[in-house]
Design a protein around this nucleic acid. Structure first.
Lengths: 166, 166
DNA sequence: GGCACATTATCAAAATCTTGATGACTATCA
DNA sequence: TGATAGTCATCAAGATTTTGATAATGTGCC
């Protein structure tokens, strides 16, 4: 498509385009974004038949590893705002997939844990979602996997550093 | 923050993985997601002072490379639904950053292109966003960059293959 | 020439996420 | 004991995205 490039007469150039200043060859953001987009799209296809959205699946997954975690802590784990997690948990509770009960000691905290149905739903969704992860894992050798993980970790560190000093 | 994690040192952590046989050590999805989350958060911080959201920035960026593209095609480029792109373009048009005019041949298509103000806004936002990309690029050697890109590409391919045969 | 097909844009409704602000509770320290 | 700081949950309003469905237009095939 688009054989038309952004032809701009070099005469009146009130703002040079930094997009051209940084060659696409060095733009890694696009690659990361593309991979994550493919991942989230595939996961959505995977968990939808189980009646779950991706955020709901993520919450159930984290909840299975940390039973009794608070809503705010769960939100941090899933990288969403506490309010968004509240809505997710409300929906999950209405459908009987999670259970919330006041904490014995901290009356202000609501302990959240999976119900039997929640475990079942997670298992159903995960059975399909795992095929995505499995395909991902099988694509690489253990060395490549470790390599990729390390590179991504450095990405996150570099991004965080840049964002802090923005 | 969060010096108090949800520690429960008492015995049974019950950290059984619901993933049935896929150790977290092999779950690359989390790593990709974390990197992309950091990236999108940083970019949001970067483009916000320019009065743009990340989707708006993405649309302007793609528009700068493909002037006169249709809304639906732009949506595909930015990996969002056509409806979402319609809203984004409406907001951008109301603020005078883009211009839409009927296509000479296809009267059903609305040609969209950036205005002067649009180019300026993109330049302003990109000036800050580039610092994120720059930090990312400077974090790696050219070999590492090529390596990471290749690994991510294989990720996308593997995910797409798995999603197709879901 | 006429008809089915694909693409485009749009309307409408529901769900989700974000920002901002409030009230309640516990832990730490003077 | 009393006060300050930090965490948790929630309300409210706004913006964004998604799903589903409809009308108009150009293209290819019969």
């Amino acid at each position: 498509m688009a054989s038309h490039r952004d032809e701009r007469p070099a005469g009146q150039q009130q703002a040079e385009e930094p997009a051209e200043g940084l060659p696409p060859d060095e733009r890694l953001g696009m690659d990361i974004k593309r991979a994550e987009q493919a991942l989230i799209a595939a996961k959505q296809l995977a968990v939808r038949p189980a009646g779950l959205t991706v955020p709901q699946y993520a919450a159930l997954f984290a909840l299975a590893d940390n039973p009794g975690i608070s809503g705010a802590a769960l939100a941090r784990t899933c990288l969403v705002t506490p309010q968004a997690m509240t809505v997710v948990l409300k929906n999950l509770e209405e459908r009987g997939l999670v259970e919330r009960s006041p904490h014995p000691w901290h009356r202000n905290v609501l302990e959240t844990r999976l119900t039997e149905a929640g475990h079942a739903a997670l298992a159903t969704a995960d059975a399909r979602a795992v095929r995505i992860e499995r395909a991902l894992a099988d694509e690489f050798t253990p060395e490549e996997r470790a390599q990729l993980r390390k590179l991504l970790e450095r990405c996150g560190a570099a991004i965080g550093r840049a964002a802090a000093g923005l």
